[in-house]
Design a protein around this nucleic acid. Structure first.
Length: 485
RNA sequence: GCGGAAGUAGCUCAUUUGGUAGAGCGAUAGCCUUCCAAGCUAUAGGUGGCCGGUUCGAGCCCGGUCUUCCGCUCCA
């Protein structure tokens, strides 16, 4: 289980060096919720900025929005989240096996039908449907017990109460309790894009094909939430919905599948640590779906989903809102006539930002050992973060804290911090300061020494190779800028 | 929800039949001035997860509870 140890070491490192903390840790923590610290939040922001730029700046036909987390409750009726994700569940106390109540009863009915008890089967199903309609959970339990429906594993009828497992978090809007209305924290950001489709398309004069991108928090009441920031109750998505002409979805699906993989590679993720995983069982809204998976320390797991969502969402919103969501396509088809009115199809790319942070962190973390010239062993912990997303780009270190070296260093600090994040440090031996910078992934360190006073040169030290070079102090800013872009 | 493990300083851990907590690392301040951690001095930091019980006395024994981690269950 060496891999598990590496993972727990990484988690400890993330805490020790200010990347990720357990939420509300001073109160013993909150399960499956995490906070990003001083370096983690910057790293996360840098990754988010890369994504935002790659979508909205480098694609002329993709624009960004920032929709609210609160949405009209009907949104979730339309999307299917309310009906599909609030299934009543029941546990068998002996086997600890959990069942969806409707599945349990349906299985029983099928068995009875196979045994020739057709009347009983029909009666049970009918009762179940009535009870489900009014959310009568005690009634459902009674139905199960009256028919002596048993657990397939324990063969007992020792059941817990029927409970509802709600994927979505709910809260109330409206400050007066009696007049308030239940609303939900969004379980995906995509719906914020769909409900704004008309606004953006019209005000931006967008022509199909075009995309709308968004980053933001989403909330899911996962039944279990584990593996650090891989699966959290509150997490951040980076989603882009690409609106296309019906019939072209497979071509765009293939296009984004390639593009997204290339983007991950551009962030420094090795191509052989990525793979596609095709969904065989599709969600209710999709006609094709695949995951881009990454080989985490705990196995291959989903990093990004590419879904061909058809016109399901826009059609549902048209139905529920009674607003016409149509696009008139003036392009000429094979018959020499405009394509005309249609509801656009959608190809979605949806990546978990927190998962991406974890990916980057787990790739970057390395414990390095080597022998020094005198034969003794030396070691360091180094985060080999790609310079363009590293939280601190440059550390500025006077070799000693007197003889005027700090003054020169502070001047350089004031100049460089205009362009990128810098870190100034004069405490402790220079080697120790290098190690501290390695631990948070700072790619470059510049040291001001006595020679600087004579010829205005400094030493630049590279994180990955630990090699050093002298260069004129006035070139530092420009050279670091080049290396981080 | 079930089963297992754990909870003592920022981190890693000691305190071996119950006798009012200690080390290393880290941190802070200073000394030294040295280009790759582990030189010297000093300082700070713990109501031992929380509540209760047994006892003259509990970090240690007992009960409860909370939280975290691992496995199972679930994952559109």
């Amino acid at each position: 289980m060496a891999e598990t140890n590496i993972f727990s070491t990484l988690i400890a490192h993330c805490k020790e060096y200010g990347f990720v903390f357990q939420s509300s840790e001073i109160y013993d923590g909150l399960s499956a919720v995490y906070d990003y610290g001083q370096y983690g939040s910057q790293l996360k922001k840098n990754i988010r900025d890369e994504w935002w730029k790659s979508m909205t700046q480098l694609n002329e036909n993709i624009v960004g929005i920032d929709a609210a987390i609160f949405m009209h409750p009907t949104t979730w009726k339309a999307s299917g989240h309310i009906d599909n994700f609030c299934d009543p569940m029941i546990d068998n106390k002996d086997s600890n096996k959990r069942y969806r109540v409707d599945h349990l009863i349906e299985t029983f009915a099928e068995e009875q039908e196979a045994l020739g008890n057709k009347d009983l089967a029909a009666e049970v199903i009918q009762s179940m449907e009535k009870l489900l309609m009014v959310n009568d959970y005690p009634g459902l339990k009674k139905l199960i017990e009256d028919n002596k429906i048993k657990c397939a594993i324990s063969k007992t009828c020792n059941w817990t109460d029927v409970r509802e497992f709600n994927l979505m978090f709910s809260t109330q809007i409206g400050s007066v309790a009696e007049e308030s209305e239940t609303i939900y924290l969004r379980p995906e950001t995509a719906q914020g894009i769909f409900v704004n489709y008309l606004n953006v398309q019209k005000t931006g004069r967008m022509k199909i094909p075009f995309g709308i991108a968004q980053t933001g928090k989403a909330f899911r009441n996962e039944i279990v939430a584990r593996q650090f920031i891989f699966r959290m109750r509150e997490f951040e998505q980076m989603e882009m919905q690409f609106f296309i002409r019906p019939g072209t979805q497979m071509q765009w699906f293939e296009y984004w599948k390639e593009e997204r993989r290339k983007w991950h590679v551009s962030l420094g993720i090795p191509n052989d640590k990525l793979r596609y995983h095709n969904h065989v069982k599709l969600a209710h809204y999709a006609d094709a779906a695949l995951d881009i998976e990454f080989e985490f320390p705990f196995g291959w797991k989903e990093l990004e989903g590419i879904h061909s969502r058809t016109d399901f969402d826009l059609k549902q919103h048209q139905l529920y809102s009674k607003k016409k969501i149509q696009y008139f396509d003036n392009d000429i088809n094979e018959d020499g006539r405009p394509y005309g009115n249609y509801i656009p199809y959608v190809v979605e790319t949806s990546v978990g930002l927190d998962r991406l942070v974890l990916t980057i962190l787990s790739l970057a973390y390395e414990e390095e050992k080597w022998n020094k010239e005198d034969g003794t062993e030396d070691s360091r912990v180094v985060m080999r973060l790609p310079p363009k997303i590293a939280p601190i780009k440059l550390a500025i270190l006077p070799l000693i804290k007197k003889d005027g070296l700090p003054e020169i260093a502070k001047d350089l600090m004031n100049e460089c911090k205009q362009s990128f994040h810098c870190f100034y440090e004069e405490k402790d031996a220079i080697g120790k300061r290098y190690r501290r910078m390695d631990a948070i992934g700072t790619p470059f360190c510049v040291t001001i020494d006595h020679q600087t006073k004579e010829d205005n040169t400094v030493t630049i030290r590279y994180r990955d190779s630990m090699a050093q070079e002298r260069m004129p102090i006035e070139e530092v800013r420009k050279i670091v800028e080049e290396k981080i872009n």
